[in-house]
Design a protein around this nucleic acid. Structure first.
Length: 152
DNA sequence: GCCAACGTTGGC
DNA sequence: GCCAACGTTGGC
């Protein structure tokens, strides 16, 4: 069992959008970063738990929880010409980008803000606080548990 | 809207 | 394979 943090802009696709999606499930398309892709393609497994993070928000922070329901598969938006995620170097025969499906679990009663996370000494090694630009990133179980406890 | 951090591209 | 130019992310 692995734990993850996935970022999305709430104006574009927030936790409420995930909750409102069919089966409360959505493919995590559009990731165009190799490290993030590798996590989704190789490491994320069905049942892995996900912190749903709102970036470019006021305030930025963890908004709720989701779960991986489908493991890595090719991101078809990468060969859909005219789609904003189109990448001419990707094709159905040779897909370059991958995604997973995640399902809504819960929305926190309040946002656990980035600022609040920074205050917690045991979270100082979080990837979020050190490599801020990675949009799909691993989280330690201890970190996941601390953040869930903050949301109680 | 600014801009620092940093990942990617492409010429050499 | 280096590295300058460029584009994107994301906090502020």
């Amino acid at each position: 069992m692995n734990y993850w943090l996935m970022k999305s802009e709430p104006d574009v696709f927030g936790i409420k959008h995930l909750q409102a999606a069919p089966n409360k499930t959505e493919p995590w398309d559009g990731v165009r970063n190799y490290q993030a892709r590798n996590f989704m393609r190789d490491t994320m497994k069905k049942g892995d738990k996900v912190l749903f993070y709102h970036s470019n928000a006021k305030p930025p922070g963890v908004a709720g929880l989701a779960v991986v329901v489908k493991e890595g598969y090719p991101d078809h938006t990468s060969w859909d010409e005219g789609c904003k995620y189109y990448d001419p170097k990707s094709s159905p025969e040779n897909p370059r980008w991958f995604m997973v499906d995640i399902q809504f679990k819960k929305e926190f009663k309040r946002i656990i803000s980035l600022d609040e996370l920074r205050q917690v000494p045991d979270l100082k090694d979080m990837v979020l606080l050190n490599r801020s630009r990675l949009s799909v990133q691993p989280v330690a179980k201890e970190e996941y548990d601390i953040i869930c406890a903050l949301a109680k």
